[in-house]
Design a protein around this nucleic acid. Structure first.
Lengths: 197, 197
DNA sequence: CATCAAAACGGATGCTGCCTCCGTACACAC
DNA sequence: GTGTGTACGGAGGCAGCATCCGTTTTGATG
């Protein structure tokens, strides 16, 4: 019985090769043309037929989620660094920045991401990552609240939405200066003002 | 010389009829299916061919801008009410709410709107409305700042972006409760805290 | 009322992208 | 070398965009 080794029986070679080629090409196209890029073009450039692409990734979201996996790991890595920080307010701030950059990896990414965040459908491959991000944000928020650096009324979800918004605006081509001003506005919104007179 | 009456010579009847039908139908479709709705379907339901639609409105944005014209007038009407208010902070708040509702008239509207806001192309029919909104916002901001109710660092453009963001998130189907929390966050960001101890 | 020219119509058309289905070819096991 | 099941890939059907041009409608004119 070969049940113990690898489930089923055999991981084929060309499958992995094609999958890798697709992911690599897809990432490039997402970067250059946004999440709405032509999947046919991706398949062609990866040297496979459309059918192969759709067998590996049945929907655009599935492909997107797979490509995002890599970035997601980078985010987790950054999280480790952030957790080392002493100042919980600083940690929250850096975490928000990291999320924002993650969200704006590709132009147009925030839309499917938000769609996934609200969706109940458990088959949406983007839903799970979103949930993780929201609860992680909540962690940082609570820590900063315990230190009295963030308003008590703020929730992780609120700042998740805010980060998403900034990423969305960034994706529309707004100048960096306006973005910075918006970030400041949001920061003023969640920071606990010094209660001393 | 008929130059004085109407410029050129004659406004044809069917033109106005078709234009009106197109606008009416387009508004319905934008409401039901968002700004990405099929223009072919709009044409067919309005009882005209695709060619006619494209002659009247060469681009999707042109059609959108024309439909928005109506809403735009409602906004101006509300502006008149708002200007009557004594409290400039209250006026700003209501203005932001009015803008937000305007932006979320159709799902997907914020995207082309932001694209227009940054664009230099003067042929984009949405660009002009955006400029007007931004400077109007700036007016309200300045008034509230003079009354000491809004941080000095805030600009009209910042709150324009914020309103756009909220409208965008609203369009993604987020629950009203989360939206309210986000609005609060933003409000905390621009309001001037009472400087008394 | 008849006629005319300009203006507007509208659908046929070509194109791109999505997604599926199925005959074929390949990879691995024996 | 042979067989079997898995994966391939491209042809094809569909929908939407945008254009072009022969035909119809409209208002002006005598």
């Amino acid at each position: 019985m070969s049940a113990g080794e690898q489930r089923g029986r055999k991981p084929r070679a060309d499958v992995q090769r094609n999958r890798a080629a697709l992911l690599e090409t897809a990432q490039r196209h997402f970067l250059q043309h946004g999440v709405g890029t032509s999947l046919e073009a991706v398949a062609k450039e990866a040297g496979v037929g459309p059918g192969t692409l759709y067998r590996h990734f049945p929907t655009r979201e599935a492909l997107l989620a797979a490509v995002l996996q890599t970035r997601s790991e980078e985010l987790v890595a950054r999280q480790a660094d952030i957790d080392q920080l002493d100042d919980p307010a600083e940690a929250l701030e850096q975490w928000l920045r990291a999320m924002e950059e993650y969200f704006s990896a590709f132009s147009g990414l925030p839309d499917p991401l938000m769609a996934a965040a609200r969706a109940q459908e458990p088959d949406n491959p983007l839903t799970i990552p979103c949930d993780i991000l929201i609860s992680a944000t909540d962690q940082y928020v609570r820590a900063a609240q315990l230190a009295g650096r963030v308003r008590a009324s703020v929730r992780g979800n609120d700042l998740f939405l805010a980060a998403c918004s900034v990423a969305w605006i960034k994706g529309t081509g707004t100048e960096e200066e306006s973005l910075d001003r918006l970030r400041m506005l949001i920061a003023s919104g969640y920071r606990q003002q010094d209660t001393r007179a």
